[in-house]
Design a protein around this nucleic acid. Structure first.
Length: 476
RNA sequence: CGGGGCGUAGCGCAGCCUGGUAGCGCACUUGCUUCGGGAGCAAGGGGUCGGUGGUUCGAAUCCACUCGCCCCGACCA
């Protein structure tokens, strides 16, 4: 493997692949379109899982697990759903050497199999709300794949809830959207827009799809999470009914929502640079790496002793790792840990020992500052918190600098090509205008932002007066 | 599926045009010296040249077919 990553300015696509492969997040698999998530990448996923799972539990959700295989007929019950997913299904036709009576679909998402069970479990309003989440893999036979951003099989979480009333379902949909928004900001250090998807872009089978939408450093948008209000679309076809307080029978109101391993791609594209990954401290499996430096055997033993004491005192407070390998030089380690995105690095050598200090280097700007040994326990958590803020601020500044009014349609067409980024415009809500824009510019309406819908303007395409403000961008 | 590119050592590549029995860098092994931004020297190990068939005294090299991967477009988290 080459020693350096292809510079982003030279080839952004190659840069992304280089970073993912070289930082050992993932590797290509023998199966086309699939990937192997390596220990580095999986550790990151586990941190994402941990943070989200805690939030789901705090908001009253329970985890469960439903089967990988779904009877083909289930998919066909909801018209829009089957039309949306048919082209990308993997289907099992043979089991145990025999042709199956009914084909089994490998789940592309679990609405249908879950709700067939909901129908069995829900009888009364007392059984509601039912708040479930599942961590699983799903398969969607994509034509074109990219590590983490779009693979044939991916890992995700899918929440599925059932409620007694429409307002309750809508409240749940928005509660999860807020949860995702908060997670993106505070854990991933990525500013995201909360918005509503257009009819064309919404989930197959949903009433409404809300999303969080992020802007990557190459000027392309990335859908980072979705929360759907399913209304009664599925409960009607799966006959998920309950008896209300008044004794009448109603279909439940449902939601589903998810985020996937795509979030790892968002971290790479959102924060990385030509030296590799940059991980937010809140999610970094290793927050601080210690690189000891020595020349003589005598120095080696004193440095090592100090490092061991350091680790013992700091390990309860921060996720810290000492790189004691002797077969590679300190300089090599600096580069390697920077590639892997570890936020802070402590350098500790004879010169530092003499002064009773260490050098602390930040992955953000690669600057180093001396910190007295005795102050580390207090100072390191502060530096990590500061790192987290700075990383977010930098991403926010980037987004602000790359969000602009679309202007006239011809101005927009030119700028989407030359500048990229988010464009603000008004849209008449006519899907023909939306399609035309997409065909002519490759940009899509990313969302109708929930904030700032109080003005009015001319539709970007047809010019008719509109009160719907939208964000457009080219997207992953 | 359309367009472009590539398959030669674990990785990145040269060699191919003009056939003569395979080479470079990194990585790996051993030893010594090193270690504050990808260490140096020395000695080693490792390849059915993607596959099949053909041309030829002889094929990594020429011809035909085939398989696979990557990138760009149409579908999508």
């Amino acid at each position: 493997m080459s020693k350096v990553i292809t510079p982003r300015g030279e080839d952004a696509a190659r840069w992304y692949t280089d970073v993912v492969l070289r930082s050992e997040l993932a590797d290509y698999s023998p199966v086309k379109g699939c990937m192997v998530i390596r220990p580095q990448g999986y550790a990151l996923w586990e941190r994402i899982q941990g943070a989200l799972d805690a939030r789901f539990k705090e908001t009253g959700h329970q985890n469960a697990y439903f089967p990988l295989f779904i009877p083909e007929s289930f998919l066909h019950k909801e018209k829009a759903h089957v039309e949306g997913f048919s082209p990308e299904l993997a289907v099992v036709t043979i089991g145990g050497g025999k042709e199956l009576e009914e084909k089994l679909v490998v789940r592309p998402t679990s609405e249908t199999i879950m709700y067939s069970m909901f129908a069995k479990w829900i009888r009364s309003y007392r059984d509601l709300p039912l708040l479930l989440n599942q961590w699983s893999n799903v398969v969607r036979w994509e034509m074109r794949t990219r590590l983490f951003l779009r693979t044939t099989e991916f890992l995700w979480q899918e929440g599925h809830t059932a409620h007694a009333t429409e307002p309750e379902a809508e409240a749940e949909t928005l509660k999860i959207l807020d949860l995702y928004y908060d997670f993106a900001h505070n854990q991933m250090a990525l500013p995201v827009l909360k918005g509503l998807k257009s009819e064309q872009e919404k989930f197959a089978g949903a009433l409404r799809t809300y999303c969080i939408e992020a802007l990557m450093q190459d000027g392309k948008a990335l859908q980072a999470g979705t929360s759907h209000n399913l209304g009664q679309n599925f409960s009607k076809v799966f006959d998920v009914k309950f008896q209300n307080r008044e004794g009448g029978t109603e279909h439940v109101w449902q939601t589903s929502w998810g985020v996937s391993t795509r979030l790892i791609g968002a971290l790479v594209l959102g924060h990385g640079d030509d030296a590799g990954l940059i991980l937010p401290p809140a999610l970094a499996p290793t927050q601080i790496v210690v690189v000891p430096i020595w020349k003589t055997d005598e120095e080696k033993s004193t440095v090592r002793q100090t490092v061991e004491k350091l680790i013992d005192s700091l390990a309860p407070h921060v996720r810290i790792h000492a790189d004691l390998r002797e077969e590679v030089s300190p300089g090599f380690k600096f580069n390697e840990w920077e590639l892997k995105g570890v936020p802070l690095r402590i350098e500790l050598g004879p010169r530092d020992l003499a002064k009773g200090q260490v050098m602390v280097a930040s992955r953000l700007d690669r600057r180093k500052e001396p910190v007295p040994l005795g102050e580390l326990v207090v100072k390191l958590p502060e530096l990590l918190a500061q790192f987290q803020r700075s990383l977010y601020d930098r991403a926010l500044k980037f987004r602000n600098d790359n969000t602009r009014p679309a202007g006239t349609y011809s101005e927009f067409k030119e700028q989407i090509e030359t500048l990229g980024g988010f464009f603000e415009a008004y849209w008449c809500r006519n899907s023909q205008c939306e399609t035309k824009i997409k065909e002519e510019t490759k940009a899509t309406i990313r969302c109708i932002p929930l904030d700032g819908q109080d003005g009015e303007g001319a539709c970007l395409f047809c010019g008719s007066l509109s009160r719907t403000r939208v964000i457009l961008a080219r997207a992953y």
